[in-house]
């Protein structure tokens, strides 16, 4: 009885910690494999990069404009109009869009579209024993399958962040125009608040979000078991864990960025 209760509480925690540990080990092995010659993953890297680009550009465009216009755009503009300070929307968009929403929306779209495709692909290969066959044929699946996906997702999320920033800020412009305010104030306030640190911080953060998505999705795909149902379960778990990882990492990153760059906390 006591043992049963202890097992129920302890075993899920143990398996969760083991899974997190395994993902850390996969990250280490992936980085080592990426750096150590030979480098046979060039072709697969390009394929994965183009695959993610093709799948994600349109959902990301719609998401950034709709989210930027709906959430920080309309909501903040309605609030600022009360004080006759709609021009402050530009500065707010630096905080909202550049630092937080653009990286978040990019990561969510990438995890939901490209990450799930990666988990489903690797999971299906695992179920069909293709991954075992690769290893038996002397091919390292980390070097040949995980590394190109890891690098491609990092690069594509980093680049998509810039794309998301542009469309996110466009949504802010749209919100200003809808409130029949001139754009001069918006831009003046925007550039008064924005700094280079905001830009590189946002891009670096999103690139690392890409690394988290790639590791989680590759890990869940490569450890899928239990037939087609198991692959579906792996995809579902990959998305949930990737989101949790992104949110947790975002907290650590933002805290660190603000602590090391205190001027970013001032609203000018």
């Amino acid at each position: 009885m006591v043992r049963n209760v202890a097992d129920r509480a302890f075993l899920p925690t143990k398996s969760l910690l083991e899974e997190v540990g395994d993902m850390m080990i996969l990250t280490g092995k992936t980085i080592m494999s990426a750096l150590r010659p030979p480098y046979p993953y060039g072709g697969e890297f390009v394929n994965q990069f183009l695959f993610a680009l093709k799948l994600c550009w349109f959902p990301l465009l719609v998401s950034t404009v709709a989210f930027g216009y709906g959430a920080p755009g309309l909501q903040a503009a309605n609030f600022l109009v009360l004080f006759g300070a709609i021009d402050r929307l530009g500065g707010f968009f630096v905080l909202a869009s550049i630092r937080e929403f653009a990286p978040f929306v990019t990561a969510i779209v990438l995890a939901g579209v490209a990450g799930t495709a990666i988990t489903a692909d690797l999971g299906a290969r695992k179920i069909r024993e293709e991954l075992d066959a690769l290893q038996v044929l002397g091919i390292d699946p980390i070097k040949n399958l995980v590394v190109p996906r890891f690098l491609a997702l990092m690069l594509v999320t980093g680049l998509f962040n810039v794309y998301a920033l542009l469309f996110g800020v466009f949504a802010g412009v749209l919100a200003t125009l809808v409130n029949q305010a001139p754009l001069g104030g918006f831009w003046a306030n925007f550039f008064g608040q924005a700094s280079l640190t905001d830009l590189w911080g946002s891009t670096l953060k999103t690139t690392l979000f890409g690394a988290i998505i790639a590791i989680v999705c590759c890990y869940k795909g490569m450890t899928a078991s239990g037939g087609a149902e198991g692959v579906g379960r792996a995809v579902n778990q990959a998305v949930v864990i990737a989101f949790l990882g992104i949110f947790a990492f975002n907290y650590v990153f933002t805290q660190t960025l603000l602590a090391t760059n205190p001027e970013l906390a001032n609203l000018r």
């Binding site: 069909r128 024993e129 293709e130 075992d132 066959a133 690769l134 290893q135 038996v136 044929l137 002397g138």
Partner: peptide
């Protein structure tokens, strides 16, 4: 060492 082996998996495990 694995090059010493040839393995026929249950469903062939061909690369799709």
């Amino acid at each position: 060492m694995r090059q010493k082996f040839g393995v026929l998996f249950q469903d062939g495990a061909l690369f799709g």
